[in-house]
Design a protein around this nucleic acid. Structure first.
Length: 432
RNA sequence: GCGAGCGUGGCUUAGCUGGUUAAAGCAUCGGGUUGUGGUUCCGAGGAUCGUGGGUUCGAAUCCCAUCGCUCGCCCCA
């Protein structure tokens, strides 16, 4: 090809204006709900000295980071919103109120190979509550209630927020004497729902647990029933482990607090929710749209972490948060056909002056319609009238107002419905 | 990082057992139709077939390399 290609890089999502309108609507619902519940908006930089971002990062993250030199500076693009938040909190701790409820809706970057649902540039909508020294368990429930409120409004269908607690898992693993294999066991639990029972069995056998341990692991994962039943079953397992008991009591507390908030229908205790292998230390959750679990995946997830900023401060900042991967969510919803018919244009009325002689009248008319709350555009490019109508048709605008010599002279102006072709009197304009 | 598939006008593709001027639809532009669009009719422009090399009398077509894209693995939002 002779010319330079205009295609975006792989993994960078660009939308048509009509899709962008829907994308922005979703983003606005999320933003509005954050604000409504007292999460304060912040905006943090995209670029950092690499040492700041890599302070906590493991091998995987380091491989995926966009890193470059500018002069003598070793710089990197942020790969999530949590690390920027951590240093923000430490940096501004003297002026922040704790618990600090914070909202971030912004892009992050990962330099990995793109594929379906995996982008190199993506929006995340994070809501976090950060405590200083300690943070009450009620905030774990509060971020879950936030997810419930957001997905209730978005109307992508019924959804389920699956809640678990990492202490419950690690206490259980400790109790069956398998702490040395904790990582592998968590990995198996995490994918248990995605593999066949046979594969699951062979994975468990591959662990080399004692017969008793393997049996109790099967029993633990196999617990079913409603939330109360599962919680009671967990109690009846009689696991003699302090961490386990703490996890169970936290999980009970979260479910009970959610009931106090009126959130019961969408929340389910699910012992197979694990979330990333480190980082989270208590409550964890994922959200799926019912019937679209495999197709769309988790649409909101997060959890509790003991210390947000151990690399930047000797003070302890525990937190709990939830993240909606908006770019992935939108791509998945579109793939699943859940995005539906979108508006082509935000414009309600397009004013079509015949020539520049009618501009003044047209601009004034547009302002009056705008004052009534309509979105109004005026087409002033010099082209044949048929072309102007074709433009109106193609943009998908609902109505047009034609302004020619007669309208200016008499003030007798009509608005035309583009779908039906019918014209009706427009009494907005008065030459006052 | 590993594996598989695919790169042909702006877009979606046909052509691929090598053989005249690379074909179609959509989009664009002009006209039938400059006070009314969607439908329709006529016409036009637009492609060094991703790039580089090789085989051959001859390559979009076969071979090699390279870049890019897509999907999967890993990991995750």
């Amino acid at each position: 090809m002779n010319k330079i290609s205009t295609a975006p890089l792989s993994g960078f999502m660009e939308l048509s204006p009509s899709d962008q309108l829907e994308f922005d609507r979703i983003k606005d619902v999320i933003r509005a709900e954050h604000v409504k519940r007292g999460f304060l908006p912040i905006d943090t930089p995209l670029i950092y000295r690499s040492e700041v971002l890599l302070a906590k990062a493991g091998g995987e993250t380091e491989k995926q980071i966009y890193r470059f030199d500018k002069g003598d500076n070793d710089l990197s693009l942020r790969f999530d919103l949590t690390v920027p938040l951590a240093r923000y909190v430490v940096d501004k701790q003297s002026e922040l109120n704790f618990p600090f409820k914070v909202s971030q809706i912004a892009k992050s970057y990962r330099g990995e190979r793109a594929q379906f649902g995996r982008f190199r540039e993506f929006y995340q909508c994070d809501a976090d509550v950060i405590g200083r020294g300690s943070l009450d368990i009620s905030y774990d429930a509060e971020v879950i209630a936030l997810v419930d409120a957001i997905y209730s409004q978005l109307e992508f269908g019924d959804f389920t927020i699956r809640v678990n607690n990492r202490k419950l898992l690690s206490g259980f693993i400790d109790a069956i004497g398998a702490s040395s294999k904790a990582g592998e066991i968590l990995g198996i639990i995490d994918k248990a729902a995605k593999i066949t029972p046979e594969e699951f069995e062979s994975e468990i056998r591959g662990l080399g647990l004692s017969d008793d341990g393997a049996g109790r692991l099967r029993e633990f994962i196999g617990l079913t029933g409603d939330n109360t039943a599962i919680l009671n079953s967990l109690e009846e397992l009689n696991i003699d482990n302090e961490v386990y008991r703490q996890g169970l009591s936290e999980l009970r507390a979260v479910i009970s607090l959610l009931a106090d908030m009126g959130v019961t229908k969408t929340v389910r205790v699910d012992l197979m929710i694990v979330r990333g292998l480190d980082y989270y230390t208590g409550t964890v959750y994922e959200t799926t749209i019912n019937g679209r679990e495999r197709e769309v995946g988790s649409v909101a997830s997060g959890g509790r972490y003991d210390d947000l900023a151990s690399n930047y401060s000797s003070e302890n900042f525990p937190g709990v948060g939830v993240s909606i991967g908006l770019t992935r969510l939108f791509a998945a919803l579109k793939g699943a056909g859940l995005v539906g018919e979108t508006k082509q244009t935000p414009v309600d009325v397009l004013v079509l002056p015949f020539s520049s002689a009618e501009f003044a009248y047209s601009y004034k008319l547009a302002d009056q319609l705008r004052a009534e709350g309509k979105n109004v555009d005026v087409l002033t490019e010099d082209m044949k009238f048929g072309k102007k109508m074709a433009y109106a048709d193609k943009t998908g605008v609902a109505s047009v107002v034609v302004v020619g010599e007669n309208e200016v002279k008499t003030g007798d102006t009509k608005i035309k419905n583009m779908k039906t072709g019918q014209e009706s009197q427009l009494d907005t304009y008065s030459d006052s």
